[in-house]
Structure formats: C-alpha cells, structure tokens
Nucleic acid binder design. Structure first.
Length: 580
RNA sequence: CCGCUCGUAGCUCAGCUGGAUAGAGCACCAGGCUUCGAACCUGGGUGUCGGGAGUUCGAAUCUCUCCGGGCGGGCCA
C-alpha cells in the first residue's frame, strides 16, 4: 500500500524506486529503470524503458527479464504492470489509487524542498540612462519565473538586478551634455529627454574620435569621484530607476529597487581584484591592456583569446565588474549557486567570467554557475524587433498596447462587465498574454513576437488557460457550492476523470522537469494539457445535475484543477480573474 | 578563419540522460449549443526530423562530416 502523504505528486519517483529495487533483486547490478510518462494512452500512464538495455548487458531475452523483474515486485494493489513490445514495462494507476491520492491531497502545492539552497538569479539588468526596451522583456520575464519557482519549492532566491549605471555610456553622455551646455536642464530632465541626449552622444562617440577620447576622460573623472559629475550622474540614476520600477509594476515583476545591484557598487572592488589577479600571476600586459589568458580559451592554432580586465587607459571593462559581482555573490551573498539570465550573445563573455573567477579562486568549486541564455526578439518577418526607423521599441509602449488590444477583444466578447472590471481584466489578459507567449517557447532560440498569435485567445495561450479557470469559478458561482476542501472524496469512473486526476497529480513532476534546465515551456505545456484535459472532462461529465456523491466529487476535481491552474500560472507571473 | 547555437508538418513550435506508429497549436474541412461560460469540444496529418556517414537490437535524440541561418571572437556593454 502506498503512503500518499509521501508520494503525492511523486508518482514517477515512486515507480522509479520500486522498479529499481526489483531490478536489483532480479540480479541487475546497476539498474536504470528509465521511467517516463507514456506518450500514448494504450501504453499506460507510465512506462519503464530500462529493461532492454539491462537485458543486453546480461545477454538475456528482454521480455523474460521483464517478467523476472515483475516477479520481484511486492504485491501492488495501486499499480498494474504489463510487459509490452520488445520489453517495455507499462504501468497503469488504478482509479482507486488516483481517487485516494486526490482525496488525501491538501492541495496541489508542492512539497517542502528537502535541500534548500541560496540561489542568486541575475536578471533584467537594464542599462540606466535609457528607457527599457523590448530587448529587456525576455530576461525580465524568464528570470522572474525562475525566482518564483525556486521560492515555491523552498529555495532562497536572491534577485540580482545588475543595472548598468557605470561605464562608457555615462562618459559619453556627460561629455555630450558638457559640450552642448545642457548640464543644467539635464539635471531635471525626464528620462525620454535623457535618452535623446544619450542617442546623440553615442552617435557622436562612434563618428568623432576626438569626442570619444573626451568621453573616456569623463568616465575616468567620474570614477575618480568628481563631485559635480557625480551629482549629475545620481540624478540620471534616480530618474531611470523610477522608470524601471514603473515598468516592473505594470508587468507584474517581483523586482523592487532594493534588488538593484548596480555596476557602480563594485567600483571599490576593482583595484583589489586586479591586485589579486596580479599576485597570482594571472595577469599579462598585452597591447597596453591587462589581460588574463587561460588555456581553455586557446584556439586550435595556438591563438590566445584575452580576457581583458583593465583597458590601456586605466578604465575597467565589464569583465572586471562582472568578476567582482560574481565574487560578491559568493563572499557577501553566500550563494550556493549563481544563475545568469542573459542573452545568448554573451555566452563567450560569461564563460570567461566563470573561468577567470575559478582560476583566481574568487569562487569555490562547489558554487555552480550557469548561464541561462536566450535568443533575440524578432518580428513576424524574422527581422529584429525595431521601429521602422531602426530604434528600439519601448517596453512600456508594448505593455500598453497589449492591454489596449485585450480591452478591445474583451469589449467584443464579454457581457455584463463594468468598465472598471474590464480595465482590470484587460490588464490581466494583456500582460498574461505577453508573458505566456514568451515563456511558452524554448528559451534558447530566437523568439517571434506576434500580437495576433499571443492574443488570439485560441490554442496554447494565456487567455485559454485563464478561460479554463473562469469556467471553474463560474461553476462554483452557479451552483452556490462552497469550497469542497482537502478531505472531500473523489470518485473516479470515467476515462475523462482518470485523465484529469492523473494530470493534476503530475504538477510536481512538471516543476521538477522545469528545474532541470529552467525551460518554462515545460510548465506552459503542462498547464495547457491540464486545461485541455479539464475542458474535455467538462464537456463530457455533467456536474451540477448529478447526484450528491458524483456532484461533489466532480466539483472537487474541478476545484483541484483551478488550484493547480492558479498556482501554475502564478509561477509564471500570470494572474487569473473570476470572470472574463 | 575559429568558437557557440539552431535547422522537425504550409506557419509557430514541442519531443533530444537513445526506445513502441515523430506530436501540439494556428490555418483549412466536417460535425456539436432549449442543459454547468461555444474564448469551448469531437473527428480529419503522405513530415527526405537540413544532406550524408558511423555507433546500436533500436537514432529526431549520441559521434563525425558537409550545407544553411543566427550570435560571438582585446580596449562598447
């Protein structure tokens, strides 16, 4: 008999353990059961694929070995096993087992994490002095999902917003303002004005070598602590941070100003860091700059790839800052793990950061570092997402458009909603659609941003999931039923009920799979399947017209589904509404 | 030239610690609302899994090679 309190939503693990033991008992030295959810209903609910490989090793007939393994299993009233094909073991859970698992389930909330870790998640990381643009969407949304899930399963997630407040871009901005006499007005300027200055400045930086030289001088002056420049700079930062927070609030991102760990905060660490590298003999002067050359970045032809830690003019490139930041994550934040939600274009850079930090012993072996890369945001025609004149699309404009579009669609479909309700619902749907469209695709590839797809309200979209949720809520409104609660009985007789019960019980497995590689599409697909399974159940299984036992059982099944949907969407940072 | 990454249905994408007949959504076609919300459900798929070779009982998945796209490769970040 299975102890549900322990195995609830850990079906796969339970089977894995069970079958592994049976394989050992059947004389297999190092068994790999390879338990997976079955792809087809005819192959049961789960299948173990490991018998064939083991049979090969032992030089036995696979089906005979499968039979021997099953013979080693203690009696299993909850599972039925079947040998199929060349030697698969197909497993089916009994309806009674599913029913008991659900009846004893307090909710679909995950179990406590057995080994909590401190995990720093670097995400969003906008450059200050500019408005946030569409390019910041991916890191922000992907990263926010990661911290939500980590916290959900009991880890300590430390949000790290590595905002760019300190570098050459500020040098050219300050130089430009000084040259054009805009210093006074810039002090009080809105961010959009600052951005214009910034664009003009970076254009000049590229075209005018003399100006570029001046700009670099300003960086050095700023880094040396020039009071006038510093005051101006602080005004820029404050304006930018306000803007950033407004975008986060609108997008429903859990970042706050307190999570900002700006580049400038590592300013005082850079020289000591350089010293440390020097003392360890890792530094080499090359063309006037200080570089670290590691063997692992050597080309086949012997060419060496430098990791530059100080420029020839004495300034520090971002590698130096990122090294200091990584060391800070270990020394000060006491991280067990550092995740970087940063674009794929930074792959080489981050590999260098990790490698140099390890070579210099800034971080210990057991601290795991991971670059969670993602691709670009493209338009439907496959070109980068820019305005017609090639400028970055402002993130706040995208969010507003999403809400506007959702409101239009809502007005055409919904009845009986007040303007105020429509406003709220349009925000939840519009923002949810953007986030879901982003998360639903594989993180690593480029992503096509398409309004019509994400807001079509059909197919694998946030509105479909939100709609499934409102249907369940409506059921409870309609019936006047009070919440069923954890101990209400679930009876399962139809295939639709079996499917829905099983799906609900697989929530934790979806989360586990997500945590392997932080691919949110795993969670999205799970929720989409859950919603689809519910819709099928809903169409085929009458609820309110049934007798008391069946009625409350099915209401409970619906309620559990609503809980799972709401929790799951919540992990993706997507809200639900009672009606839409 | 070197490195990383991707190439799966008309389109957007899953599947990749090797497993059964490669799956979804969109679009398209045909059905289903006097009954719990039809933003839904049911049925309809002849795909060189970029090409080739290799490893294996078995390859979309692993290895090699070629082709094609994207992104990187010392003084921007």
């Amino acid at each position: 008999m299975i102890h549900f309190a322990e195995l609830f939503m850990k079906i796969k693990q339970t089977l894995e353990t069970l079958i592994r033991q049976a394989m050992v008992d059947a004389g297999i030295p190092e068994p790999k059961p390879i338990v997976k959810q079955s792809q087809r209903a005819e192959f049961g609910h789960y299948q173990a694929n490991g018998v064939m490989a083991a049979a090969k090793q032992l030089k036995q007939a696979p089906r005979d070995l499968a039979k021997a393994i099953l013979a080693m299993l203690p009696p299993q009233p909850d599972f039925s096993f079947e040998i199929a094909g060349p030697g698969f073991i197909n497993v089916r859970l009994s309806n009674d087992c599913l029913s008991r698992a659900l009846s004893q389930a307090a909710s679909t909330i995950a179990l406590a994490c057995p080994a909590p870790r401190r995990i720093v998640v670097d995400y969003s990381s906008p450059n200050l002095a500019k408005e946030m643009h569409i390019g910041h969407l991916r890191s922000t949304v992907i990263g926010d999902t990661i911290v939500r899930v980590l916290e959900h399963v009991g880890h300590t997630a430390i949000r790290a917003n590595h905002v760019g407040d300190w570098g050459a871009q500020f040098g050219s901005l300050l130089a430009y303002l000084a040259e054009t006499g805009h210093n006074e007005s810039a002090q009080a300027a809105a961010l959009s004005d600052l951005e214009k200055f910034y664009q003009a400045a970076s254009k000049k930086f590229k075209q005018d070598p003399e100006f570029a030289e001046t700009a670099r001088g300003y960086v050095v002056k700023l880094q040396a602590g020039d009071p006038t420049l510093k005051q101006l700079w602080q005004a820029f930062i404050a304006t930018s941070m306000d803007h950033g927070q407004a975008v986060y609030d609108k997008l429903g991102i859990t970042l706050s100003k307190a999570d900002a760990m700006p580049e400038s905060q590592y300013n005082d660490d850079l020289l000591p860091l350089l010293d440390s590298l020097q003392n360890q003999g890792l530094i080499e002067r090359s063309d006037g700059a200080l570089c670290v050359f590691l063997d692992e970045f050597k080309g086949k032809d012997g060419s060496r790839l430098p990791a530059m830690v100080q420029k020839s003019d004495g300034g520090f490139p971002y590698l130096a800052t990122d090294l200091a930041a990584l060391r800070y994550r270990y020394q000060t934040l006491k991280a067990d793990e550092a995740l970087y939600v940063v674009g794929a274009s930074q792959q080489l850079h981050l590999r260098q950061v990790f490698a140099v930090a390890r070579a210099a012993d800034f971080i210990p072996e057991q601290l795991t570092t991971r670059h969670l890369a993602f691709g670009l945001v493209l338009k439907a025609d496959g070109t980068p997402f820019k305005t017609r004149d090639g400028a970055d699309v402002k993130l706040i404009d995208v969010l507003n458009e999403a809400v506007d579009r959702a409101k239009t669609l809502l007005a055409a479909r919904s009845e009986g909603l007040t303007d105020e309700e429509q406003q709220v619902i349009a925000r939840v749907i519009g923002i949810g659609a953007i986030k879901y469209a982003e998360l639903q695709k594989n993180r690593t590839t480029d992503y096509v941003f398409d309004w019509d797809t994400m807001l079509s309200f059909e197919g694998n979209t946030a509105p479909y999931l939100q709609y499934a949720y409102t249907r369940i809520r409506s059921l409870f409104r309609k019936s006047g039923a009070s919440p069923m609660g954890p101990n209400s009985e679930v009876v399962i007789s139809t295939t639709e009920e079996t499917a829905l019960a099983l799906k609900n019980l697989q929530f934790q497995e979806a989360i586990d799979t997500y945590l392997d590689d932080y691919q949110a599409n795993v969670l999205c697909n799970y929720l989409f399947e859950l919603a689809g399974t519910f819709m099928t159940f809903y169409e085929h299984c009458p609820i309110l017209s049934e007798n008391q036992t069946l009625r409350s059982s099915r209401l409970r099944l619906a309620e559990l589904t609503a809980d799972t949907l709401k929790t799951g969407l919540g992990l993706l940072g997507i809200e639900t509404v009672e009606r839409m």
